[in-house]
Design a protein around this nucleic acid. Structure first.
Lengths: 249, 249
DNA sequence: AATCTTATAGTAATATTTACTATTAGAACA
DNA sequence: TGTTCTAATAGTAAATATTACTATAAGATT
């Protein structure tokens, strides 16, 4: 590890003579970006929304939708703006994952990126490439190409977060269509957690949470006995949260 | 919400004529800081390590140990360096919480701060104020004074994280002395989770995890039957992690 | 030696989870 | 129209885990 003195002298460009001697402007050399990990579920697989970069650096490579934050812009707003500009997606509620700040992660200068993630229902949105994005597409998580910057590890960590979260919060619902069957729900859980469950027990477990509302309607156009359609009972979930009851799958 | 065009024009200082017209240097106006939330447990209460600021802004106020990151310094290293410089604490393993980027959170300019947190055993470290810190002390979390910047909410979120984590990871051990009794352990859990447990059942639950090593030694100088002393069995925990067994309290 | 406090052991009732089996119902086809 | 397919739904008995207790043990203090 470099000595503190050496490090400082590299920064300030001349010999270091004391802590308070570094002019504060020397610290204002960073740029900040946001990167959005939008996860979806389709055809029995988890997908992530990627763009093809139509601008340097890493032009042509696939990447997370992300861009630099304006110096007078809040981070959350930046994430919302960037996602909309590049993919057309609006009204997507994202939460921060964490920040990535490797010194050499960006070729142009020191850029810290802040990760945001969201789970969405693939069929409720229609991504459309825009601005400097040459393309937008849902890419299978088991089959990711080489990505720009450190985006592969940003996705990996978001995924770890999802697997952790799915056990303690009813996040599955966000990834399914508005109405879904218990079979679909089970397939989703099995996919995320990479684990098989007993069908009858899975049903009991999920139903006993009291977070599903029976629509009284049935699947149609299936070549077998159709299953009941459910929706997520938001109200019941709010009540559960208020009571402080902690959800466990 | 401001229109994009207006926002841009504020940033670039002249009329906006198209996305690619903003020179990239305009984006490199940020500074980045790290703030360390060091939590400890002492005399039946959770504490956080705070400094008294001996420098502007917010001179004189209590604050988290934190400072600006050098433009050529990795975030983790910065956190380690800053903590050591201000409080003398070394070899503290911290993990990132999240970043805070409100536009007006710092009076000098646009400063994004990255939160780091750690749980430590109060009696294993000897904090000592240094550099521009006028003072270091363990402050009771139930009795926090007004803090500099947005540090109160950084602490609040770290605390929420701790309460979440304590249910799924054996973090309690980090906060206790190397050797501890089951009674101390129970008091800690009750304190963090603000909930009482049945003594006999708590013992069974904790022991059945198989993460405690019996030292065969006893408490001394207590005015009652002395309790057995335990240590955390790191090896057993590693094995548990390898097997992928998920810890639940 | 009596008394205090807290540790430790044990247990019975209750609740939850698990591993099953059995039955049901719509669609498709003969 | 009934036979067959597939997956949904219902039910249950054994095994496990949790909970709410009671009883006993042991060192320190008086």
């Amino acid at each position: 590890m470099k000595e503190k003195k050496e490090v400082l002298e590299e920064v300030i460009g001349h010999q270091f003579t004391g802590y308070y001697k570094i002019p504060i402007e020397k610290f204002f050399q960073f740029a900040v970006s946001v990167d959005c990990v939008i996860l979806g579920y389709h055809e029995n697989g988890l997908k992530v929304l990627l763009i093809q970069r139509g601008a340097e650096p890493h032009q042509g490579k696939m990447a997370l939708p992300g861009d630099l934050v304006y110096p007078n812009e809040d981070l959350e707003l930046a994430a919302t703006r960037v996602l909309k500009e590049l993919t057309g997606l609006d009204h997507v509620f994202m939460t921060q994952t964490r920040s990535y700040g490797q010194v050499d992660r960006h070729p142009v200068g020191r850029v810290i990126t802040v990760g945001y993630y969201s789970l969405i229902s693939v069929d409720r949105y229609e991504p459309l490439a825009n601005s400097w994005a040459d393309n937008v597409s849902w890419v299978d998580l088991d089959n990711l190409p080489g990505l720009a910057f450190d985006h592969t590890s940003i996705i990996d960590e978001a995924l770890t977060m999802l697997r952790e979260r799915v056990r303690h919060q009813p996040v599955g619902f966000e990834l399914l269509p508005k109405e879904f069957t218990l079979g679909e729900m089970q397939a989703l859980y099995e996919n995320i957690l990479n684990e098989k469950f007993d069908k009858a027990n899975f049903r009991k477990r999920i139903l006993s949470m009291g977070l599903l509302k029976d629509t009284k309607r049935m699947q149609s156009d299936v070549p077998h006995r159709p299953a009941r359609l459910f929706t997520f009972d938001k109200e019941a979930y709010q009540n559960l949260l208020k009571k402080g009851t902690n959800f466990e799958f």
